[in-house]
Design a binder for these strands. Structure first.
Length: 720
DNA sequence: AGCACGCCGACT
DNA sequence: GTCGGCGTGCTC
């Protein structure tokens, strides 16, 4: 006898949906969340498909679970993500499902209200409670007790005697309703045109992907807020994706200034009951605007009409464990599936987004000027081959005098060096022993404050030894090269009476203290800031008028095919810190190669030329324009296994036709959370079949013992 | 992700 | 002898 069969996808690392018999009388629909037996236990899963068939030997669906189900669009998206990333379907599903946390008992908020009844015995305390409750307002038990100035026990006693009745209180809404008409919407002409373009595009039958490019300080946020306002006006939802660190109080306040309330936020810090309620409210469409980290892309939105990817070039959008994906690219796909507009916002767009603009896949909206008539900082390079720097010093005389003038005027200077610690290399003067990490092959970086040698690759830390571990000589360690701590030492010697601070990701005291310090800098309590990449983005320092880049060449020769692009973006961001307040800013860039395309473009301010040049250079180097470049990550718990597998894939195995292995990319071998990773660059001739090529290739790769995984990172638009 | 099964070291 | 370590593999 034919009966109903449900193919249920379980949020585990399983690649196929399992079939279960649907018991008679159980109403099921595709997308429903159900409970099913799996081996010895019961698990939750999602009905991926329903069909008729012989289900006699299948286990039975136990029941349907309450809560939001997954729409066909959502399921299509998850299928796509799984297909594209080579991750098991169940793993993709696991990113979307948030089941109630069983450890957490439901917190029922009980309200109390006065009845007609009088207590059998009146006491002064009871009298106070009755007085306080006389207004008829329903209050929490504890609130009433507090208002009456008595303990909870008195209230409980009155409840027992029926003088007060209890009622379940409605939950507070998870987020306020943003009001598109709330705040000031004064925009510059440039902003206004851009905003109108975005809003108009939202009304198109197939809303586009728009690259919103605007220099630091041009007010991109206010522009895309207008698109968010439009989504809210239409009663639809908007998602603002941002790198986790960018979800700051500052951003939320800006949103509140425009919309009257803070947006709902979704990130790893939102947990427990709050996470569950937000999940449900997003699924029902009750919450209109969500600002979230990349994981927010996998929520079951009810009616999404806009996705903004803020700082689209940020590498933090890449997820490198579990399901490997790039949230910006997945956002583009989700937008297509949901028929929502996607806005990619950045001051320094990624090359692939530019290429997509060129190819006509994305639209380009530009904000060429700073808001409020402010100008971009003047950038000048300092040729280190010509300007002599005293031995053991790192600031050139002209940079020193500029810092001097700047702080003398009561303005701030930022000295940027993208190297944490005191010195990037430490060696023994007596025997020339170089301190190396025992796990990876990286140099150990001296951290004087912490008195330790640290591996910046894997996090290995050891005490700075008194005597050389190799030859035993005492006090023989020599620091080679500068880190921010060493620069701080130099600055203190040069400017003993100025207030300085060192900011890097290992800042002692954690994010809490860092936030206070950033606010102190903004308030002008510091004269000279010495910082790593940490200071390159986000914070606005109105008094900062000078940025000195100490070594612009760091990273230009790393062998990473994206080295030039990354360096350019970073330098543009950091020099953009200057002159964001009343006074104009300038930047001095110390370099050994002033003619390098990255430095030349930075100084001339001609980003467009740099990107053209960079695309050309890549093509000449045999690197394909984006969309045909993939990177494979082989990872395993043992170094030998990872290396062997990577070698096998790069050389032994014959790649499928049209696929070429370009060799190791970025850090060829890295130890990340106990797994060795080997990254290979792959080029393909044809875009559309890349996935199929790689699948067939991988299936023919020799099996290497151990738990190896492979992931792929390509341009998604090729596959739509 | 769980959970069972299985094959080797130190214990009542 | 067996309790338990975690390596490997399966779950409709």
């Amino acid at each position: 006898m034919a009966s109903k069969i449900a193919d249920v996808l379980i949020p585990l690392a399983l690649d196929t949906a399992y079939s279960y018999a649907v018991p008679d009388g159980l109403a099921l629909e595709e997308g429903d969340v159900v409970q099913v037996p799996l081996a010895t236990r019961e698990v939750a899963g999602v009905v991926w498909a329903l069909r008729e068939g012989q289900g006699a030997n299948f286990k039975k669906v136990t029941g349907v679970l309450e809560g939001p189900n997954l729409s066909p669009r959502m399921r299509k998206f998850l299928d796509w993500v799984s297909w594209y990333t080579l991750a098991p379907k169940g793993s993709a599903l696991a990113m979307s499902l948030k089941f109630p946390d069983p450890d957490r008992t439901e917190v029922v908020r009980v309200g109390v209200k006065l009845t007609e009844n009088l207590p059998r015995r009146m006491t002064p305390a009871r009298q106070k409670v009755i007085e306080a409750a006389r207004d008829g307002i329903v209050r929490l038990k504890s609130e009433l007790a507090h208002a009456a100035g008595v303990s909870n026990g008195v209230v409980d006693g009155l409840i027992d005697e029926g003088v007060l009745e209890t009622l379940a209180l409605l939950q507070e809404p998870v987020a306020g309703l943003p009001d598109p008409a709330f705040g000031d919407t004064t925009l510059s002409d440039g902003q206004d045109n851009a905003a109108k373009e975005l809003v108009a595009a939202m009304g198109e039958e197939h809303p586009p992907v728009i690259l919103l490019e605007g220099v630091t300080g041009s007010g991109k946020t206010e522009v895309y807020f207008e698109a968010v306002a439009e989504a809210v006006r239409q009663g639809k939802q908007a998602l603002i994706l941002m790198p986790e660190i960018a979800l700051t109080a500052q951003f939320l306040d800006r949103f509140a200034t425009r919309f009257g309330v803070k947006p709902a936020t979704w990130h790893s810090g939102v947990t427990g009951r709050k996470r569950e309620r937000l999940y449900a409210a997003i699924a029902s469409g009750e919450v209109k605007v969500i600002a979230g980290a990349r994981s927010a892309l996998f929520l079951p939105y009810h009616d999404l009409s806009l996705i903004v990817v803020d700082e689209e070039h940020e590498t933090a959008y890449k997820q490198d464990d579990g399901v490997h994906y790039h949230a910006r690219d997945m956002a583009v796909v989700r937008g297509k599936i949901e028929n929502a507009m996607v806005v990619l916002a950045s001051a320094t767009p990624s090359i692939e987004s530019r290429v997509n603009v060129e190819r006509g896949r994305y639209r380009h909206v530009k904000l060429p000027e700073r808001f409020g008539g402010r100008s971009m900082p003047q950038i000048r390079s300092i040729d280190l081959r010509r300007e002599q720097i005293p031995k053991g010093r790192w600031l050139s005389p002209s940079l020193v005098s500029s810092v001097e003038e700047t702080v003398a005027r009561g303005e701030q200077a930022l000295l940027f060096l993208n190297r944490r610690g005191y010195a990037p290399l430490t060696l023994c003067r007596a025997c020339a022993h170089r301190y190396e990490c025992p796990n990876c092959s990286a140099w150990l970086v001296e951290h004087r404050f912490r008195r330790s040698l640290v591996c910046h690759h894997c996090g290995h830390v050891e005490r700075t030894p008194q005597a050389c571990v190799e030859c035993g000589s005492l006090d023989s360690l020599v620091p080679c090269g500068p880190g921010v701590e060493r620069i701080a030492e130099e600055v203190t010697e040069l400017f003993p009476d100025k207030r300085t601070i060192v900011l890097s990701s290992d800042f002692p005291g954690g994010t809490e203290r860092l936030r206070t310090e950033l606010a102190a800098i903004a308030a002008g309590e510091v004269d000279i800031v010495i910082g790593t990449q940490l200071v390159a983005k986000g914070h606005n320092f109105p008094l900062m008028t000078l940025v000195g880049v100490l070594d612009a060449d760091i990273g230009l020769t790393s062998g990473d095919p994206r080295a030039a692009e990354r360096t350019f973006q970073m330098l543009q961001q950091v020099t953009g810190r200057a002159g964001r307040g009343e006074k104009p800013g300038r930047a001095l860039v110390q370099t050994w190669q002033p003619d390098h395309p990255v430095i030349a473009a930075l100084v001339s301010g001609d980003a467009e030329r740099f990107y053209e040049e960079e695309t050309r250079v890549r093509e000449m180097a045999g690197l394909p324009p984006f969309g045909r470049l993939a990177s494979l990550i082989v990872s395993a718990e043992e170094r030998e296994v990872a290396e062997a597998h990577a070698r096998a894939m790069a050389m032994v195995t014959e790649p499928p036709p049209g696929v070429m292995v370009l060799g190791p990319a970025e850090a060829p071998l890295a130890l990340i959370r106990g797994r060795y990773r080997y990254r290979l660059l792959v080029k393909t001739e044809r875009e559309v079949d890349l996935q199929a090529y790689l699948r067939s290739w991988l299936s023919r790769c020799p099996k290497v013992r151990g738990n190896t995984r492979v992931s792929i990172d390509v341009d998604p638009q090729s596959f739509l």
